[in-house]
Design a protein around this nucleic acid. Structure first.
Lengths: 185, 185
DNA sequence: TACATATATATGACGCATGCATATATTTGT
DNA sequence: ACAAATATATGCATGCGTCATATATATGTA
C-alpha cells in the first residue's frame, strides 16, 4: 500500500524533526550558541585527539568554517588544540575540563528530553522500538566516517556498552570502530 | 534497566539526526538555500493563507527574521503576499505556482530518502514501527501551534488521509485541526 | 638528495540569515 | 474618541559560515 507507506515516512519525518528540536532545545539551555558548536563538543568527546579536518567532515562544514568554530570553542576554554603525535601539521583536539562539563550537560539534557518522548511506551513496546531502531540504523549505508556523522550528538558510553548498531554495521568495525578505538573488544 | 533505556534514547537521537540530515540533504538538492526557507515553503503549503506572525511561531524565528525570510521567498517568486480578508494589518501568505512546484520537489526528495531508511523493515515490522511512531507522536505535549512545529516538513496529504497522530492529539482537533481546516470530517 | 605534489591548518574578504530596537498601520476595548 | 494591543516593516549589528589563498609539513619520485 503506497498510501500507508507514505504515511509511515511522514511519521518518521515528524519524529526526526521532534527529536532534533528536542536536542537543540536542550543544547540551547546549557549556553551553547547556534550552529554546530554543540555537535563539535559531543563529537570531540567521543573522539578525543580528532583533527580539525576530521571534525569538518563529521560536522559537514568546510575546513575554514571548522577552523573558526574551533577558534570560538578555544576562546571559550571548552576545547584545546594540542600537537598531534604523528603529524606535525595536524592538531589533536581535546575537551578542556570545562568542555567536558559542558558535554555532560548537553548529553544530560539530550537524554532527559529524549527519554521523555519514550515514556508513553510500555516496557514491551520499548524493546520492540529498540529492536526496530537497531535494524534501521544498522542499515544506513555507512563507512566509518558517516557513522560518526549520524552519531555526532551521541553519548558514546552507553552506546558502545550496548552494541551500537551504526558502529557495528561498518565494515571496518573490528579494526578501528568505536570499540577498537577505545580499547574494548 | 537504566542502561538499556539510555541506549534506546541514544538510538532515538541518532535516528532523529539521520532523519533530519536526510531531509536537509533533499532540500539542498532542489535549490533551497540555508536556514528555514525549506520549512517555510512546506509550512505555507500545509496552511495557505498563513500570516507572517503565525509562520514565525511555527519556524521558531523572530517576527523580523520571518519578514526577511518571506521577502527572500517573494523575491524568488516562490511565495506571494496577499491581503488578509479579516484583518487589514495581516498578510495571507500563499505559494505561487513555482512555489508549489518547489514544495512538491522538496516533499518528493524527503519521501524518497525517508522511504529508503525504512526499506530494511519487513511489512510486519513496518506496521509495528508505524504504530509505535503514532504512539510516541500522539503523546508529544502539543497544542495546535506546537503540532505544526513538529509537522513543518510534512506532506499533509497522506498524513491527514491517514489520521495524523499529532493532529489528533490536539484538544481542539475537531474544531480547527488539519481536517477541519481543509474541510474534511 | 632534491624537488614536485599533496595534505593540514590558518587568514583575509565577504555574504547571508538572523536578532534587537524601533517605527508604522490597523484593530479592539473602554 | 482614545488608549492599548497587534501585525508588519525597517535600520543596524552580528554570528556563522563560504571562497580564495597562504603557510607549514609530509610524501613520493627522479
Amino acid at each position: 500500500m503506497a498510501q500507508r507507506e507514505d504515511t509511515t515516512t511522514n511519521l518518521l519525518g515528524a519524529l526526526g524533526v521532534a527529536v532534533t528540536d528536542h536536542i537543540r532545545a536542550g543544547i540551547d539551555t546549557v549556553g551553547e550558541h547556534g550552529g554546530q558548536s554543540g555537535a563539535a563538543i559531543t563529537t570531540i568527546g567521543i573522539l578525543p585527539g580528532l583533527s580539525v579536518g576530521e571534525l569538518a567532515g563529521i560536522l559537514g562544514l568546510t575546513h575554514p568554517g571548522t577552523v573558526r568554530l574551533v577558534d570560538r570553542l578555544v576562546a571559550d576554554d571548552l576545547v584545546e588544540k594540542t600537537a598531534s603525535a604523528e603529524d606535525a601539521r595536524a592538531l589533536a583536539l581535546r575537551l578542556t575540563p570545562p568542555g567536558k562539563q559542558r558535554r555532560r550537560e548537553i548529553l544530560s539534557q539530550r537524554s532527559k528530553r529524549l527519554q521523555g518522548m519514550l515514556d508513553v511506551l510500555s516496557g514491551a513496546e520499548r524493546r520492540q522500538f529498540d529492536a526496530l531502531l537497531r535494524k534501521i540504523l544498522g542499515n544506513l549505508p555507512v563507512n566509518r566516517q558517516q557513522a560518526y556523522v549520524v552519531c555526532r550528538y551521541c553519548d558514546a558510553g552507553p552506546c558502545f556498552r550496548n552494541d551500537c548498531p551504526v558502529d557495528n554495521a561498518c565494515p571496518d568495525a573490528a579494526t578501528d570502530g568505536l570499540a577498537a578505538m577505545t580499547g574494548r573488544r
